[in-house]
Write a protein that binds this DNA or RNA. Sequence first.
DNA 1: TCAAAAGTGTTATCCTTACACCCATGT
DNA 2: ACATGGGTGTAAGGATAACACTTTTGA
Lengths: 309, 309
Amino acid sequence: MPSPAKPRAVAIELNAVLVALIDEEPQVLTLEDGALLPSGPFEGDHPTLQTGLRAWVERQTHHPLGYVEQLYTFADRSRAAATSGRRIVSISYLGLTRERVTAAGHEPGWQNWYRYFPWEDWRGGTPAVLARQVMPRLRRWIDAASDPAVRRGRRQRMDINFAEASWNEDLVLQRYELLYEAGLVPEAGGRRPTTDPLPGAPMHYDHRRILATGIARLRAKIKYRPVVFELMPPDFTLGQLQLAVEALAGRPLHKQNFRRLIDQQGLVEETGGVSAETGGRPAKLYRFRREILLERAVAGSKLPLSRSS
Amino acid sequence: MPSPAKPRAVAIELNAVLVALIDEEPQVLTLEDGALLPSGPFEGDHPTLQTGLRAWVERQTHHPLGYVEQLYTFADRSRAAATSGRRIVSISYLGLTRERVTAAGHEPGWQNWYRYFPWEDWRGGTPAVLARQVMPRLRRWIDAASDPAVRRGRRQRMDINFAEASWNEDLVLQRYELLYEAGLVPEAGGRRPTTDPLPGAPMHYDHRRILATGIARLRAKIKYRPVVFELMPPDFTLGQLQLAVEALAGRPLHKQNFRRLIDQQGLVEETGGVSAETGGRPAKLYRFRREILLERAVAGSKLPLSRSS
DNA sequence: TCAAAAGTGTTATCCTTACACCCATGT
DNA sequence: ACATGGGTGTAAGGATAACACTTTTGA
């Protein structure tokens, strides 16, 4: 049995997109006033990457980590340039946690993720920033190309990713990358000055790209795996569950059909209790039926979308 | 702007699951008589991981590589043990290629992927190996647990992943990992002797796990992205296209509905030519409409499954 | 009494699955 | 003639999307 090729040494860095639902909003854990995702070294004495990630996240946040999933591995030269030429491979993870965590040092904090991607929040209808800022700038970028073929290509990409009529909430990463390419986000840096960047907070390095990857993955996943429950408290009302899914997907859902889908699939069971916190009629409390994960390959919460708010 | 944490140095290795359709069968490129996937070092002078991968694959195979997609990054300690204690991070990729490629050195070759996973081929009905070998051994493994709770857990996992009635072709990796855990594949090694392993060729290191990851990813992907065409010749008949999808998915499809789905979605256009190679009535030739990738976020070939062959 | 949110029932529409059948060629 | 694979039309069933309406609480 031959040994595999001997590769050259580089450094490994782990990045985490840590998501929690706080005050019914999707929040990510950040450092440096929201400009960095938590990241740490992979220490060689861990048996796997996941245990390494769990170790420093839990050390940093003093809180156990729930669901964890690998996102992507980058090793772009552009990253290395920022760190004195040493090659860095960065492996990013998505982590879901149920409760508020507080980190030690580095002034950490939870940030609403729509702070970074305001055009992704359609819960209140079409976001204003889209019509007022994003689309006009993209159109200017299209017109800036002299070659008509290039113009056509740019227009098609804009139509696919940003068309209002057929908005696809899963394309978070593609949209961010298009804006990057168009020089409309500060991270694009260098050549293009980006005198007047779009609304949406930037981050250092490629952390906003990693965040976009995490949001996109999570939005896709809730449709075919019941991962929302990793973010919910043990007991919840169906209304709260709907708000949670809406917060993640960034779009309003159709109430009646959402409820039907949820209990048709047997995802939840009544606890017997009620919650009178919401103002109207008290709502029954439910809990996630963990057993279902073992019973069958279960689908997530399909999204019963509604066009008009 | 602070610099990120300085991680410790390790070695990077790239692995490729290179897939082609040869003689209407799904084949993967291997070395060492089918026991290894092609792998190579990541050389630091490449701008990205993908270009690094493309470079050595093309150097080794003398053939350009088509579609490429990252699969997963592993850094399990068990791998390192096999290579004198040095820590290795292995980043694996799925690559699709349209034509026969021949590699230099290391006696490479294409292998039918069902050689490694015979229970995954349902094109001719339920595979014999499932009823005759896999299920009985899994049942013995279930009964081997003394704790009834453990037995119940094992039974549920078997039911989810291997139930004949609700076979899910995407669960290739989960099924392999269950067999690994049950000690039914030689790679499980060490403790359990595995006196009489299951049919299905083993591979060195965790290469069979990586292959399972690639097959699973590809099977899932053909349902929502038109990637089959990366494996087809420029012109093809709808019958050949169906055979291709069946080969990848490992199950028979419903002819009429497959055809309807394909052209309803506008994925192909007629070339005008016909092929008289198949014995019966000559079939029209089609080509993939590449433009469609730009026109809209296009779905792949949904699988119109048929229960009875 | 009214606003606000919970909760139930029914209908229209589309997509998937399935079935039945005809067409063009080689032997 | 008939076997073989190519190709077309249509009906049944189920899931989704949409609509109308009732119930229970707090202010």
